[in-house]
Amino acid sequence: MNFKKILVAVDASENSFRAVEYVGEIVGSSPGFEITLLMVFRPPSRDLFPDEAAYNARISEIKSNAEAFFKKAEKELEGKGVSSHSVASVCLDAVGTSIAQNILDFQQSGSYGTVVVGRRGVSKAEEFLFGSVSNKIVHYAKNCTIWVVE
């Protein structure tokens, strides 16, 4: 694994932006790094919406937030001295129920040596009920280094 090949898992949240900021600080203008911002897109359940219009409006909102996040994150990295040629943004449609597993599959297939995630800090009860992407990544990742940014 190439540890200079960094996969930053993002979800358009402030926590994941902190992860981007951290990566920018660490990498800066150092040569040889490759950074991929990965967002796994899982549309909300259609069951949550009374009609198609409300559902489609929400999907549009999520997509537009994602685009805005990528622009902001790329600008942040550039501002920290990271060359725009070494940054890629990828949006992936989720497969299965676990976003963490999608991220780890992407890490394996792309031979990323470093995975970076933001963490919002959840209580034990929240972890039981909802799970935690960052905790799962820490638990199941193999052959790579994990940076957890809180």
Binding site: S45, L48, T97, L129, F130, S132, K136
Partner: peptide
């Protein structure tokens, strides 16, 4: 029903 979570069946 609920919005998706990393552990969808935790509840």
């Amino acid at each position: 029903t609920y919005d998706f979570a990393e552990s969808p069946f935790g509840l």
